[in-house]
Amino acid sequence: MMMAGPVLELRNLNKDIPRPGREPFAIFNDINLSVREGEFVSVVGPSGCGKTTMLRVLNGLLPHSGGEILLDGKAADQVSDQLLMGFVFQGASLLPWRTSLKNVLLGLEGRGHNPQEAEQVAKKFLDLVGLNGFENHYPHELSGGMQQRVNLARALAVNPRILLMDEPFAALDAQTRSFMQLELLRIWAETKKTVIFVTHMIAEAVLLSDRVIVFSHRPGTIRSEFNIPLPRPRDMDIKSNPQFLDLENQIWKQIEQEVKAAGGFAQL
């Protein structure tokens, strides 16, 4: 179903941590962002800028301190018990005592699905992420890339309105990471999900996204936005496209400035 307005809208969203006897510790400030249906948005920024915290706030794992989160135009806290956002964790966070299939089923259990149906759904998404035949494997029997595939299938299986991804490929080796980026592009094209993707790798953000948001240093706020008009479908060849390199370079310069403003590289 197509909505006229944005899927997600953040208005003056901020998050701080109260400290007794001192002013609150601000994590991020004044985030204004709207995300269209089916859009792939990446968030990059210097370490500690609050980008991961923002994802956790969006997922309801942390409360926000001010501002609004609107999902399809409605305040998110009023609809928060529904699974409107699926979270793909940085560590795969698979339960070691559950097989791939059972891990994907976790989000579907206890939601009034009949068990056979739920299993069909879980299998469908395991297929989608390329794990056909690995349904009965335990996490310790899977490679890091495969574990992240299960992580992704689990998030997709609950049919979330928005997919939140927190540096899902950070722990993978460079080669696996590249393959997973291409896989994610394919899966995104097939599912047409709206994605918010946090990463510290600029090339990854440019490769995947329709739009890249650059956060300032902490307290994080949106410093700039880059539309990525590169044609789709994309593959690794695009990384040598002059426009790709130019975008990567521009974004890098901004992050570099932010890191310097925060006290220089020694702060990293």
Binding site: G60, L61, D81, L83, F87, F89, S93, W97, G110
Partner: peptide, 24 residues
């Protein structure tokens, strides 16, 4: 991480106990 996973998938307290805490 597992407890967070349970919260992210909106497991209730009983499901958290039965599906996460107990097997772990």
């Amino acid at each position: 991480e597992y407890v967070e996973l349970a919260r992210s998938y909106r497991l209730d307290r009983w499901a958290l106990f039965r599906k996460i805490l107990l097997p772990a």
